[in-house]
């Protein structure tokens, strides 16, 4: 080809054309897959919420959600109520699980009252109060769901992350870490304590359930600290409501 690819005009034309082609292609792809992706995200939320209250297909070591096909059915079977708490006002809303915590927290920063979604699940005659949490890990956001019983003892958790270091911080979504939370207390009498992720609690088997700490993961100090901070901050917001349950 005898084209002069070094000329300025050609360079600018090429850059413009390339941006147009790539931009169009990506925009087209993104918008045509948008609905499918949103559906996947919705299913994932339902799976995560059910997982926290112990509705899953785990074997000994795996993390396995209820399958995509039946999750909608199971979700309406086990999640009996979805509440939105806003100040002292509590309303029921069947789409509360779609509330975006990131937007709510932005709303709080703007000085507005944030909406707190809470899911009430029922399994084998016991009630679960499932609280969504969201915070910061080392690289990116971390989030999860914490299932409490009416005495505010943790019955199950699910954690996930956007980009924690593979093999280190990413282990917060593994069974060996999440299972440690089961049975942990968050209240010391009437005082709220939360759950720390501790490197020095000398309790690797996690036998003490009232020490307000679980064993940390080696090499993921900042993810662990972020997770503990997330639990502390987000669970606390629900306390006024949760305390009314006991009465």
């Amino acid at each position: 080809m005898a084209k002069n690819t070094d000329s300025n005009v050609y360079t600018i034309l090429f850059a413009t054309a390339m941006v147009l082609v790539v931009g169009t292609l990506l925009a087209f792809l993104a918008s045509s897959l948008k609905e499918k992706i949103a559906e996947n995200k919705r299913i994932e939320k339902q799976q995560n919420i059910l997982y926290a209250m112990g509705i899953n297909e785990n074997d000994e070591t795996s993390v396995t959600f209820v399958s995509k096909e039946i999750v909608g059915e199971k979700f309406s079977e086990y999640i009996t109520k979805q509440l939105i708490i806003q100040g002292s006002e509590v309303t029921e809303n069947d789409e509360a699980y779609l509330i975006d915590l990131k937007k709510e927290s932005a709303r709080e920063k703007a000085g507005e009252q944030r909406r707190l979604p809470l899911f009430v699940g029922e399994k084998e005659n016991s009630k679960f109060y499932i609280i969504p949490v969201r915070g910061k890990g080392l690289w990116d956001a971390i989030w999860g769901y914490v299932a409490l019983d009416k005495d505010l003892v943790v019955q199950g958790v699910f954690f996930d992350h956007a980009g924690e270091t593979p093999g280190l911080g990413s282990n917060i979504k593994e069974r060996f870490f999440m299972d440690d939370f089961i049975g942990e207390h968050i209240m010391d009498g009437d005082t709220f304590k939360g759950i720390a992720v501790s490197k020095s609690n000398a309790d690797p088997k996690n036998l003490r359930k009232t020490d307000f700490a679980v064993d940390a993961i080696s090499g993921s100090t900042i993810t662990g600290d972020g997770l503990a901070a997330m639990l502390k901050k987000d669970l606390k917001m629900y306390l006024p409501y949760l305390k009314t349950l006991k009465q």
């Binding site: 080809m1 690819t5 360079t11 090429f14 390339m18 790539v22």
Partner: peptide, 18 residues
């Protein structure tokens, strides 16, 4: 054969990123 050599690195980046 059509990539302008002045901006080839950017073009490469766009290809990988896309």
């Amino acid at each position: 054969n059509i990539i302008p050599s002045k901006i080839r690195i950017i073009v490469q980046l766009i290809v990988v990123a896309s």
